[in-house]
Amino acid sequence: MKQFIGPALLACAAVVLTNCSQATPYQPESASSAIHGGYSHEQIAPDLFRVRFHGNSLTSRETVEAYLLYRAAELTVEQGGTWFRLLDRETEHTVTREIRRDPLYRPWYGTNYGYWLPYWSYRVRGGGWLYYDPWHADPFWADRFDSREIEEFEASADIRIGRGPVPTDDTRVYDARRVMADIGPRVVRPKG
């Protein structure tokens, strides 16, 4: 039995790492999804909807906005419409900075003394000064390794669904089936 535990554990780890290292596919947003993010909508009136697409940190703004447009078209067809009018649209850009202390710093007097940790400056070639402070995770030997920025995009749109012939005199009106035909081939869906 022991000989199967190692490979099984390795396979599980590979699945987890694969799911964590993928851009958000075109999927409904759900807490039980293996990959964070997806689309959602709420009905505001009989023919008025607010549509959203939330991407994870590996999903580009362009993809988030394309999936939002695709979802608006798909929802229009699901509701029996032929076209939709874009009433309002917004894309939120969230940047989170993750900072970690230098994991190698261990003073002989322990870490129980709060901010009583070393801080010094040093001059670099070219005349500038850099600073070392383990609380800000910017040690001189690894200037950006202990901090990173995480970007996520979430786009939303309010749409009004229409039926019948597509109005041609309004630039905010989209033919739902045409949008689906144009964008659909590039939409990435979840595997499995």
Rank of each mutant, 00 (worst) to 15 (best):
L117G: 05
L58R: 14
A176F: 14
G37S: 04
T111I: 15
I161K: 02
E42L: 15
Y132E: 02
I44V: 12
Y67V: 04
A157N: 11
L87P: 07
W141M: 13
H36D: 11
S121M: 11
Q79C: 00
Q27R: 09
R125S: 07
D47V: 07
W108V: 09
L130K: 13
E98Q: 09
R160T: 07
V179A: 12
I161G: 09
P167N: 03
A31T: 02
E29M: 07
V51F: 01
N19L: 08
T96E: 11
D158R: 15
F140I: 12
R160E: 10
Y67D: 06
Y122V: 13
Y131I: 14
G6L: 10
A73P: 02
T24G: 02
W83M: 11
D47K: 09
G126C: 07
E74D: 07
I99Q: 13
S21M: 14
T171H: 10
V95L: 02
A45I: 04
D170K: 14
A181N: 11
G6R: 06
S57A: 07
P7M: 03
E78A: 15
G192M: 03
E154W: 03
A155N: 00
F49N: 03
G37D: 03
M180D: 04
R144Q: 15
A45E: 11
D102E: 07
L48S: 12
S30L: 03
L130W: 05
A176Q: 09
Q43M: 11
L86A: 10
P134L: 05
Q43G: 02
Y105S: 05
V179F: 02
D146C: 07
R71K: 12
I159F: 01
S121V: 13
L10N: 00
K2V: 15
S60H: 15
N19S: 09
W108E: 11
H93T: 08
R163H: 04
V16R: 06
A13Q: 04
E92L: 11
A8C: 03
G37L: 04
P167F: 05
E149A: 13
G37P: 01
I99F: 06
V16N: 02
E78I: 12
A73I: 04
W120R: 12
A23Q: 15
